[in-house]
Design a protein around this nucleic acid. Structure first.
Lengths: 67, 67
DNA sequence: CTGTGACTAGTAGTCCGTG
DNA sequence: GCACGGACTACTAGTCACA
């Protein structure tokens, strides 16, 4: 569960660095807006394929998101 | 799908470093033995919580598994 | 713009086997 | 010891309306 929160914090920090809203980022990552919201709050336990989808528009390796 | 294969290769390499069979490792990680087999073959798309369960007995951070 | 509850379809994850 | 299959349950992916 802890890893989900870490992931959420990393995603939020990197997204805000880009100056994107959740909606804008959701569009870039091709993931639903509410799903991004859930992930940033650590309320989901996503798969590694989602990790990759998140990492791509942020310009970081997927591993970076769960460091 | 590519990330799944990378994960599988990393898990297998680290497991063999420890000298564990898939079954022994499955026991250490508290994951079913057939699931370990699937993961090492890149045939599954696990969640981040499984990543953590895999990483713990291997003594590496979860991020290391998908580098 | 974001958080949340609810919902369905699909798959993650377990467990039984076999060669 | 490992790959692979079938069958099953629990949970995730993906979406919506609403606050």
């Amino acid at each position: 569960m802890d890893i989900c929160k870490r992931l959420g914090q990393n995603v939020r920090a990197l997204r805000e660095e880009k100056g994107w809203s959740q909606e804008a980022f959701a569009h870039e990552a091709d993931i639903h807006r509410t799903y991004i919201s859930d992930i940033e709050r650590g309320a989901r336990n996503p798969t590694v394929m989602i990790l990759e989808k998140l990492a791509k528009p942020l310009g970081v390796p997927a591993a970076r998101l769960i460091e």
